[in-house]
Structures are given as C-alpha cells and as structure tokens.
C-alpha cells in the first residue's frame, strides 16, 4: 500500500537506545521513598521470620512443658504460656498462618473486586446493574458478624473456610472503588482512541485501563490483606477458628482463656499484639508511599541522566 510520507535515507540505521524498563523505574521510586522502604522492610522481615521459623525456633511450638507461666528468661526469651509453651516459638510460628491467610484472602478478594467492579463498569448495561446490585447487597452485610455466624455454623472455620468467608465479605469495597475509576476512565479520549485503532475489549482493559489503575489495585490488595489479617485474628481470638493451630489470634484466645492478664502474664499478650500492629502498620506505610508514587507527574522525570546518579542518593 501507500507509505506514510517518504522515508528519508538516513533512517535505516536508526536504533533505539536502551532505557530501564518502567517496572525497574517504579521499584527505584519505591526504594527512594522512605515511608515505603520502611514498610517493605518490616513486612519482608515478617515474611522471612515465617519462612525461617524451623531455624529460628526449632521444634513444635505447641509442645507442652513443666515451665508454666514463666516470665522471660534466658531460655524462654519471651516467657511461657499457662501450658508451658514457649511464647517466642509461638510468635514466630504464628507468623505463618496469619500471613498465608492474609495473602491468599487478600488476593482472592482483590480478584473478585476487579472482576466484578471493572468487568461490570467496562461492559456497562445490564451486567453493570447486576454487579452493582450485588455490591450493594454485600456491602451492607456486616463482615465480621457474618463471619462469626458462619464460623459458628461451620464449627470452627478451617483455613479454607476462613479465606472464603473473608473474601466473600471483603470484595464490595474494592469493587466500588474500581468501578468508579473504570467509569471515569472508559469515557476518556485515550480509551476511545485505543478502540479506534482496533484494540479489542480485553486489550483496552489490559493495556489502557489497568496501567492507570495499578496503584489503586495494589493499594486495594494491601488494604485487603490488612482486613483479612484483622478478620483472621478476630475469629481466632473469639475461638471460632481452629484454636489448635498456633497463630497470633489463637495465642490471644488462649491467653484470654487462661486469664493471662489477671496473672500479670504480659509476655503472653504483648508479643502477638505488637506483631499484629507491626504488620498492619507496615502495610499502611507501603500504601501511603504508593499514593505518593502513583502520579507520575508528582515524581521527578525519569530522565536517563538522573538514573545514573541514582546511586548517590537523593
């Protein structure tokens, strides 16, 4: 067919200089952002603790010993429980179910929010009406009370049941936010322009909408992890989870059951409490830094020269 304009002879040898891909630049921005870095370090620290539990605290954390209600000693760094279990060992091992449930439930909830929120809003019409109706119904269902009812009904929610309950009650919040963002974006000229170049519906969602929503999606994911951890801890604390697994929530349940506070056994309550607060705080810090990084206009231009000087700090 026709060639656009005429090719000028000097163009043949033209090549693109290599530039760090966008994802690398985003990570760099993250690391430069103090708040985000602190949050990531704390969170990753807990992930590492959980992974290294067999090394840091070898042995079964549920093992019962004669040393009951011992305050911190050289042997039991964080003291013992009323059944003589090591609190240190329990806190370390307790990281695992808490993070796993938080992560899986967070991922599932976010996936539901995206499918229902973005899918409904982008397609519009009856599909959107149905999606909105479901969001509105589910959003008024109070999450934690429903979980309590379900957990009671299921007789001690296992891990899978707990993840399902958390996801089923958690998705409408994200779905609403993503829906309104999608509605705002789909009317924008650049989405129309993409359609006019022949981009498919899935191509538009994936290439035009998602990149503009990624900070919202990640923020939503982190908030959902926080929500899931909170829900998991609450259920465990109320004894509605599996109280025989060692988790921060079940530690608090047993501490309450044995009236640890009345016995002045602060070492049994404070460590899991601090861990919960630290994980929640770390996620909140990361979330805040995403807000700061989200807008490319607010960060400095990713000029190639700047990147080279990046090592000297800013």
């Amino acid at each position: 067919m026709m060639t656009p304009f005429t090719a000028s002879p000097g163009d043949e040898g033209e090549a693109l200089p290599s530039v760090k891909p966008r994802s690398a630049r985003t990570w760099l921005a993250f690391v430069r952002n103090r708040t985000g870095l602190i949050g990531i370090v704390i969170f990753v620290g807990f992930v590492v603790l959980g992974l290294l539990a067999p090394v840091i605290a070898p042995g079964n954390p549920a093992t019962i010993t004669m040393h009951i209600m011992s305050p911190p000693t050289a042997h039991y760094w964080l003291g013992t429980t009323a059944e003589g279990q090591s609190v240190w060992s329990q806190v370390i091992w307790g990281t695992r179910p808490t993070l796993v449930i938080g992560f899986i439930a967070g991922a599932l909830t976010t996936a539901l929010s995206i499918i229902i929120g973005v899918g409904g809003a982008y397609n519009g019409g009856a599909l959107d009406d149905v999606a909105t109706m479901f969001s509105n119904i589910f959003i008024v269902i109070p999450g934690i009370p429903l979980m309590i009812v379900l957990a009671t009904y299921l007789h001690h929610a296992g891990t899978v049941a707990m993840i399902l309950v958390i996801s089923a009650t958690g998705w409408p919040f994200g779905a609403r936010v993503l829906r309104s963002q999608t509605l705002a974006l789909r009317k924008r000229d650049f989405v129309q322009a993409a359609r006019l170049t022949g981009e498919s519906t899935w191509g538009i969602v994936q290439r035009e909408l998602f990149p503009n929503m990624i900070s919202l999606i990640v923020a939503n994911f982190l908030s959902t992890i926080m929500y899931a951890i909170g829900a998991e801890v609450s259920l465990q604390f109320l004894g509605l989870g599996n109280i025989n697994t060692v988790s921060w929530g079940s530690m608090l349940y047993w501490a309450g059951n044995y009236q640890a506070l009345a016995f002045g056994a602060w070492w049994w309550i404070i460590p899991p409490g601090i861990c919960i607060a630290l994980v929640g705080g770390a996620l909140a810090l990361v979330n805040r830094s995403i807000d700061e990084i989200a807008n490319p206009q607010l960060t400095s231009a990713p000029k190639r020269g700047r990147l080279h000087r990046g090592g000297t700090g800013s």
Partner: peptide, 9 residues
C-alpha cells in the same frame, strides 16, 4: 484535546 487523547502511562 491532545491532553486527553494520549494514555498518560
């Protein structure tokens, strides 16, 4: 509007 017709990302 060239401010609206290009995807900012």
């Amino acid at each position: 509007d060239p401010y609206a017709s290009l995807n900012p990302v």
